[in-house]
Simulated scan of single mutants.
Amino acid sequence: MSATLLPKPLMRGLLAKRLRKHMVIAFIFAAGCAASYKFGVAEPRKKAYADFYRNYDAMKDFEQMRDAGIFQSVGPKGK
């Protein structure tokens, strides 16, 4: 029965080496999340707002709400 000896684990500098590796992984993951949010959520939202306000007429919207009776202090047109 010949037992082979396991090599001693390297303990000196282990934390620094692992931390360096995990910091790079964390930075890449965070940059990927930020980019996916920017292009998946923020840009489409900005485009939707720009499209909405490009043709938005506040007076037309006000008149529709007034005619529907939403406002308490403003009666329908013609009354």
Rank of each mutant, 00 (worst) to 15 (best):
H22G: 01
M11W: 07
Y49M: 14
A3L: 13
K47T: 11
A3R: 11
A30G: 02
L15R: 08
Y49W: 14
M11F: 08
F29D: 05
L15D: 09
G13S: 04
H22S: 09
A31E: 03
K21W: 04
A34M: 05
A3Q: 10
A42F: 11
K21T: 13
A30C: 11
P44S: 02
P44I: 01
M23T: 12
L19M: 15
L5Q: 13
L10A: 12
F29L: 09
P44E: 02
A3D: 07
A42M: 12
M23Y: 05
A31Q: 03
R20S: 08
C33N: 05
F27L: 13
A16H: 01
A26F: 08
M11S: 10
R45N: 15
A42K: 11
M1C: 07
A35F: 08
L14A: 15
I25L: 14
K17S: 09
P7L: 03
R45M: 13
P9S: 01
R20M: 07
A30M: 09
A16Q: 09
V41E: 06
K46R: 15
C33M: 13
P7K: 04
A34R: 01
S36Y: 12
L10E: 13
G32F: 00
K17H: 10
I25M: 12
L19T: 04
V41F: 06
K47S: 11
R18D: 03
R20E: 07
A50E: 14
K17F: 05
I28T: 07
K47L: 11
R18A: 11
M23C: 12
L5E: 11
K46F: 08
P7S: 04
G13W: 03
A3I: 14
L6I: 10
M1K: 06
